[in-house]
Amino acid sequence: MTIRSFLAALAVTTALSFPALAHAGQVKLSTNLRDYGGNPAFLAYYVTDASGKYAGSLWMAGGRTRYYRHLSGWYQATGGNAGEVNGVTGASVGSGRSLDISLDLTDALFDAGYQLHIDAAVEDMRESPDEIVIPLTSANAGKTVQGRRYIADFTFSR
């Protein structure tokens, strides 16, 4: 009986270990811009949950906070709080260029109703909120999504 109890305890501890091992992983976000002929684009990558509520930012391409208002979806969700992208901000991306971002993201983001949004803005050109909106599902990993204005296509992979 005692041995059986220990076997059960062993099974439980082992079972608990496996989900913990799969808690996060590298995710690559690949964005190709169209050759739109303007200045480099600001791009805001952020996530909303199943109810459409802002969950957090993943990347901001473009460092000048005073232009963040033109990333209107992100700006509305965050109130323009630059702290949301502190540590995840880089250069804006030139016309016709591509941006690859690799992040260590929690697995809880996937197949749980979350959506990745990309807002785009270019100086003296029209704003493009929600240029990309893609549900973060395993089925969508590796699928290429077309952008509407500045982004030619986008793919995420795990």
Partner: peptide
């Protein structure tokens, strides 16, 4: 460091 938003490790 990246923001502590629970999304990024």
């Amino acid at each position: 460091n990246p923001p502590a938003n629970g999304l990024i490790t």
